[in-house]
Structure formats: C-alpha cells, structure tokens
C-alpha cells in the first residue's frame, strides 16, 4: 500500500489533467457547433459536450476506454473476436509479427554474441559496428524493407517480422556479449583448475552468469520489436494491424480509433515486457541470483 499510494496519486492526477485538457482542446468545436445552431452554451453543458464528441481533438479517457471495450471485450462476448473491426484481430496481426521477429532476432543475436566472445577477429570487427548501430535510427529503413519485399512478392507477416528481428538483434548482441564476459578472471581460473574445457566453461559458467544481462536485453528487444512491427504497418497502406489502425484513423480523423489503437499497443507492450520480467524473476530466483 505504501508503494501503491504515490503511484495511484500520480495516475489520478494524470487522468484529471487529461479531462481538463479535453475540455480545453474540444471547447472550440463545441462553441462553433452551438454558434451555428444559435444556442447559448452554459459551462456544464459545454464540459459535458467536450467529453462526448464523436471526433474530438482529444478524446476523454472514458471514451477511449469505451472504444477499447467495444472493440475487444464486447466483441468477444458476441463471438466476433476475430472480425475485422475487432482490436483483438488487429492486435494479433501485430503480435504475431512481433513475436516471430523477436524470436529470430534474439536467436541470431545470441549466436553472434557467442561467436564474438570466442573469436577475437569477429569481436574486433563486428562489435564496434554493433555498438554504433545503437546510435543510428535503423528504424528508418523499415518502409524500404516492406516495399522491396513486396515487389518480389513477399508480403504480410514476413517483412514486418524482419524489421522486428533486426531491431531486437543489436540490443541482444550487445547485452549478451556483456553478459558472457561478466565472469571475472578468478572464476575462469577456478574452472581451469578443474580442468574444464571450453564447452564446459560456456555451459557451466558463462551462460548462467549472462542471464541477468540477457533478460535486460530481451526486454529492450521486445519493446523495439513491437515498435518495428507497428511502424512496418504504416507504408503500403496496410489494412490490418495496430499500426494500420492508427494510420486509417489519422486519414479519416477518427481520433478515438487512434487512441484506442495506441492504448492497445501500450497494453501489448506492457504485457510482453511484463511476461519477460516474470520469467526473469522466476529464473534468477531458481538460479539463486535474486533474493
């Protein structure tokens, strides 16, 4: 409770500020409408109107929540969870690309990290580029990948997964190399006094001690994968996925739709990172690395 109270206070303040901002941003539209119909608006009617417009500049929190419920839970109850108007459907499209890309990216990243740790030439040639890649906005090549793959007949899941994969690849390489190098000389020396060979050194010392670094990198990689999949849905006028929902929403001025897609993406990101965090907690606890 002691930890929850400040967080709840901050959240409540944010929601109140949001309602306030909704009044400020939507008031002009409400005034214009009233002027056209020659109605005088008093304050309470004005405020009620700003919170319930069809296409507000800033939808109020309850409108977004309603839209989210209408496109997820309510559709599930009606048994139309996979219809094209359902956010579950769009979320699944994005999620499948994210997960496929994440698995490919982290798998390749871990393999390259192992190569870098055991091969000095590879370490010295690849590692500076892997670190430099973190300072470069590599997300910018996402539209190109989509269009190029589209022109040779590959579309749908794979191009988005490729973007997700390369976005999660580099953080995992850098984090995993750090992790595999984290055992200090004493521990390595101890293993060599046991006459352990390199393979045993890897499985019994390097890999276990890299776990905290790996999980941190996985969390960053997962968030990056999701961003990649969403941005991958923007060009070529995709019609499915959370990114496409945002794009069509912005074309037709459906602000509530954009906000609900945004919140769906946020919930998805939080859930995915949360799952990794839980696995991290359980794993490190069993390994005795966390109290």
């Amino acid at each position: 409770m002691k930890r929850l109270l400040p967080v709840l206070t901050v959240l409540i303040v944010i929601i109140i500020a949001w309602y306030g901002a909704a009044v400020g941003m939507n008031a002009k539209w409400a005034q214009d409408q009233a002027l056209r119909q020659n109605i005088e608006l008093n304050t309470s009617v004005l405020i009620a109107d700003t919170w319930n417009q069809d296409r507000p500049r800033l939808p109020a929190p309850h409108q977004v929540a309603q839209e989210l419920w209408k496109t997820t839970g309510a559709m599930m109850i009606k048994g139309k969870a996979m219809s094209k108007r359902s956010l579950i459907f769009h979320g699944w499209i994005t999620l499948s690309a994210t997960l496929l890309g994440f698995v490919i990216g982290t798998g390749a990243g871990i393999l390259l990290a192992v190569g870098i740790v055991y091969n000095k030439a590879m370490d010295m040639s690849v590692m500076p580029w892997a670190i430099a890649s973190q300072t470069i906005p590599i997300l910018a090549i996402a539209p190109m990948i989509i269009v190029v793959l589209n022109s040779i007949g590959i579309q749908g899941l794979i191009p988005k997964a490729i973007i997700s994969a390369y976005l999660s690849f580099f953080p995992v390489v850098v984090g995993m190399v750090k992790g595999l190098r984290s055992p200090d000389q004493q521990q390595l020396d101890l293993l060599s006094t046991y006459n352990a060979n390199r393979r045993q050194g890897f499985w019994k010392l390097r890999l276990p001690s890299s776990m905290p670094y790996l999980f941190t990198a996985l969390k960053i990689g997962m968030a990056a994968s999701l961003v990649g999949a969403i941005v991958g849905e923007l060009p070529t006028g995709a019609i499915r996925g959370l990114g496409a929902r945002m794009l069509t929403g912005s074309y037709y001025g459906q602000t509530i739709q954009i906000w609900s897609a945004l919140f769906a993406a946020a919930i998805l990101a939080a859930t995915l990172v949360g799952i990794i965090g839980y696995i991290q907690y359980r794993t490190l606890k069993r390994m005795g690395m966390q109290p």
């Binding site: 999701l226 969403i230 946020a266 990101a269």
Partner: peptide, 9 residues
C-alpha cells in the same frame, strides 16, 4: 517502455 512513436498521428 511503451511504443511512444504511436503518438505521431
């Protein structure tokens, strides 16, 4: 940790 780029539209 959220995909803030989504606020772009």
């Amino acid at each position: 940790a959220l995909p803030i780029v989504g606020t772009a539209p």
